[in-house]
C-alpha cells in the first residue's frame, strides 16, 4: 500500500556497501533500493549505521566496497558536489544551518547550484546577477510560504527555536529542488505538535513535488504512518526490508529492538 503511488522505477540502488572506520564496521554489505517517488524509512537501534548510510549516499563517506546506482549510473562512490548537482539534498541530525546568516540567506544558499553568474557581474550587482538573484528569490519565497516561515525571513537562524531551525533546514534542502531528499532524524527533539507539522511537510513535499525521500527516524509511530517502505539496519547489517506492516511483524526486527531472550 503506498500513499502516493510510487512507481516501480528505481531511483537509487545501494549494493553490497561496506564501510569501516579502522576496525569498526559501520556498514557491512548493505543492499537496498529506493523507488522513485516513495518515502523510505531507515530504522535501527543507535549505532546501526543509519547516518553512515546517508553519508555514503551523498558522498561524504566513501565506502570500501560496493556500488551506488543513482539515476541509472553506477559508481563506486559519490562525491558531495556530484551528489548535490545530481539532485540529492539532505538535512542533518544535529542541525547544520549557517548560524550567522538569516533564514532567507540560508535558503538562498540552497539554490547555489541554480545560480551561474560570475564574480564580476556579482560585484556590480547589475544585469544578469541581479536578475538571477531576483528569480531565485522568488523560488525561495515559494518555499518560505510552503513552510509557513514568512515571519522569520530576516532573522538570524542561530537565534530561532529548535523546531523552526529544523524547518529552515528542510527549506534549505528543498531550495535545491532535489530529486532525492535525505532526512536525518527530522523529528528528533520535537514535541508531538511539531512532529505532526513536520510529518505533514514531508508528505506534502513527497506528494506535491514528487520528491523521493529517505528518512531516518526513531519515532516508530511516525515511521509506520508516513513511510511506504522501511529498511532496518542493525550493527551495520541490513536485517529487514518491507512495508511497515511487514516490518512490525518481523521477528528479527523485534529481536534487534527488544533484545533476544537467552533461555
Amino acid at each position: 500500500m503506498t500513499i502516493n503511488g510510487a512507481s516501480s522505477e528505481i531511483l537509487l540502488k545501494v549494493e553490497d556497501v561496506s564501510l569501516a572506520f579502522g576496525g569498526i564496521k559501520a556498514l557491512d554489505s548493505v543492499s537496498f533500493d529506493t523507488r522513485k517517488g516513495e518515502i523510505l524509512a531507515i530504522i535501527g537501534p543507535n549505532g546501526a549505521g543509519k547516518s553512515s548510510m546517508l553519508n555514503v549516499i551523498n558522498g561524504f563517506y566513501h565506502p570500501q566496497q560496493g556500488t551506488i546506482t543513482y539515476k541509472g549510473q553506477t559508481r563506486k562512490q559519490m562525491r558531495p558536489y556530484q551528489a548535490a548537482s545530481q539532485g540529492i539534498a539532505r538535512t542533518f541530525q544535529n542541525i547544520a544551518l549557517f548560524k550567522g546568516m538569516s533564514t532567507l540567506d540560508n535558503i538562498m544558499t540552497g539554490r547555489n547550484l541554480k545560480m551561474k553568474t560570475n564574480l564580476f557581474w556579482q560585484a556590480l550587482y547589475i544585469g544578469p546577477a541581479r536578475a538571477e538573484e531576483l528569480k531565485n528569490r522568488e523560488a525561495v519565497e515559494k518555499i518560505i510560504d510552503f513552510l509557513d516561515i514568512q515571519a522569520i525571513r530576516q532573522k538570524a537562524v542561530g537565534k530561532l527555536p529548535y523546531g523552526l531551525q529544523k524547518r529552515v533546514e528542510l527549506g534549505r534542502a528543498l531550495a535545491a529542488e532535489p530529486d532525492l531528499l535525505l532526512l536525518d532524524e527530522p523529528m528528533a527533539g520535537m514535541n508531538s505538535e511539531e512532529k505532526e507539522d513536520m510529518s505533514r511537510f514531508i508528505i506534502d513535499v513527497n506528494m506535491e513535488y514528487g520528491t523521493t525521500i529517505i528518512l531516518i527516524e526513531h519515532d516508530m509511530s511516525v515511521v509506520m504512518d508516513i513511510s511506504d517502505r522501511v529498511v532496518v539496519l542493525d550493527y551495520g547489517r541490513h536485517i529487514a526490508d518491507g512495508e511497515p506492516h511487514e516490518i512490525r511483524a518481523n521477528k528479527e526486527v523485534i529481536d534487534a529492538y527488544l533484545g533476544v531472550s537467552h533461555e
Partner: peptide
C-alpha cells in the same frame, strides 16, 4: 559565509 559557518553542510549543498 556558508563555508565559514558550517563547511561540511556547505559542501553537501554543492558549494565547492
Amino acid at each position: 559565509m556558508a563555508i565559514r559557518d558550517m563547511d561540511i553542510a556547505a559542501e553537501l549543498i554543492g558549494v565547492r
